[in-house]
Design a protein around this nucleic acid. Sequence first.
DNA 1: GTCTATATAGGGATAGAC
DNA 2: GTCTATCCCTATATAGAC
Lengths: 211, 211
Amino acid sequence: MFSGEEELKSTRDRILDIALDLFTEKGFDKTSLREIADELGFSKAAIYYHFASKDEILMALHMRLHEFGYRAMDRFGRTPANLEAWADLFDELIDEIFANRKIILMHQRNSAAFEGLHHTTEHDDDHHDIEAVFREALADPAVPLRDRVRLTSAVGAIMGGLVLSGDMLNDVPSAQLADLLRDAVHDLLGGRTAKPAGRAGARAGRLTPPG
Amino acid sequence: MFSGEEELKSTRDRILDIALDLFTEKGFDKTSLREIADELGFSKAAIYYHFASKDEILMALHMRLHEFGYRAMDRFGRTPANLEAWADLFDELIDEIFANRKIILMHQRNSAAFEGLHHTTEHDDDHHDIEAVFREALADPAVPLRDRVRLTSAVGAIMGGLVLSGDMLNDVPSAQLADLLRDAVHDLLGGRTAKPAGRAGARAGRLTPPG
DNA sequence: GTCTATATAGGGATAGAC
DNA sequence: GTCTATCCCTATATAGAC
């Protein structure tokens, strides 16, 4: 949805695309507006026609993820707090997570910079941050501790696959990687120790057949 | 091993402790030497008696983790590349990972800054970076793709538990959290789909007994 | 919409007193 | 070992021409 036809994009979007790459590679603070401008072939000051400040570029990128994040967290918030339900949700979400891989990566590599935004720029502010609902679930004493740990582990496992997919597993097709991660998440959220078999088959043969 | 008697520490170590906190909270770039100095009650320039540059502070913190990381990666490099062996290794490593929790957090929140160090400061350089051996295993085509994904997932799961332990699960004792993570990692690395039972018992009753 | 030129601030780093 | 004072550079941001 984002990549594709490079030509007919607005200058604003081209700035954001370059910024996304540079912020991911070098970090927000170490990326100067001059570098972004150079990459696009015009001068630093030209950026200020499109964005009032460097922070606003970061905020615009935040918004790219925010729409997805808000939908996802809304669904999470309406999902019963148990492993089975979470497993199903992740099953559906992983493809979308992969589609937003680049911008998620940028977020996690610049978490400090994003935290700084809350205090300065306006941010709607009456809705919670992307992770707020998630953190609430983790703090909820009504949910068994084991389940909460499993939840963080599942998110971490997905993030691990995502981060490293950009490095070492780049040649692996996303769909295949997504399937393998779904399988891993399932093992993580699959329930208590005893859960013999017949379950892998329940999830519509996404796995490559053994062998 | 790190926290404890706050009084009889060298100024150098006190600088590092404060820097560790500030770098984690606000990020390396957004933390000025003045802030570090203020926190300690003396002036900015005094820091230069102990460190030649800001980068050297970061490097010193890197070294705090490096010793552990090097040992861990050495063991990892000498471990056969299969899920069973990795599971056993993580089993042993998790306690140490928890002991280094703060500094691991700082590393992952400032990964960009640390990458910048390699190109400037000397860094022994003949030994690999902490993650290098790990990345090699991920790139090794001799290892089944599924196993490699499991490996990243396991690391991600631990990191997830670690990161969020600092936020929402702070009241939970580390030992308990470590046990729950060990259990999760085991489910992740436990082998192929069919692996009925009798395995949880094989790992020396670390788990709280069911019920 | 993009340019050049410039204002301004902040932070890393050095010199030298105490 | 810590201080004050200062230098210098970089980067954000603005003003105004084209």
